[in-house]
Amino acid sequence: MLREVHVEELTEHIKEMCIQVNYQLSGDMEAALNRAAQEEESPLGRQILCQLEENLQIAAQDRIPICQDTGMAVIFLEIGQDVHFVGGTVENAVNEGVRRGYAEGFLRKSVVGDPLERINTKDNTPGVIHMSVVPGDKVKITVAPKGFGSENMSRIFMLKPADGIEGVKSCVLSAVEDAGPNACPPIVVGVGIGGTFEKCAVMAKHALTRECGRHSEIPHVKDLEEELLEKINKLGIGPGGLGGTTTAFAVNIETYPTHIAGLPVAVCICCHVNRHITREI
């Protein structure tokens, strides 16, 4: 049986989610920040983490976005194959949600229409939409606005199979080192391993939407996440890049089968304002 979903419903949800996520971080991110503020060894680092805690309170209380870069809206839609959308196209409905959310929420319009001519579209559209079809009759919407201070520090490496797991580790560590203070640490590191050039990039971005502190279900991938997090926090970059023991809150890895000749690795870096929110309709 097909279930009809009016696209206006998508628009309303996306509008609300764009606003909510820019004013209030998910509980997992807030918990990670609070824990770090206790454990950070550098006094200046602790001072900065306390500023970030206070920043979250002010954002929620006074309705000021957590960060002025309210991001380019990235939207993941997992659409049940028994859903039939009516009332318009999904893409238009999603962008209308972004448009309304960024206008009504006093969010910054950071999108230029043509990457070379660079004229601001003034409504933060279009978003970047990733759709997949899944079993069932539900639609899972994830909104994850991405700031570009950290996006600009993200990297793709096309490794050789012989580079192996050690090669993967050095890619992640070098991307984090290069990012240094620019990516607004403490960061969350999304990693995609395998697939193709574009597949690993999408996995790395999607990995950022995973709850902070939850690990991969694949035992050796979980081990790799833990090892990399420990190593990253030994780099010394620290909060704000001003030195310390908290450089990252989490390393989230997604994997996919790949070709006999390749080992693609994407490292998507996100600042401590790692905004992600999910709803199912």
Partner: peptide, 13 residues
Amino acid sequence: FAAVGGAGALLSK
């Protein structure tokens, strides 16, 4: 000088 990146609500005050 560096200001703390991602503390825009606090800094606006």
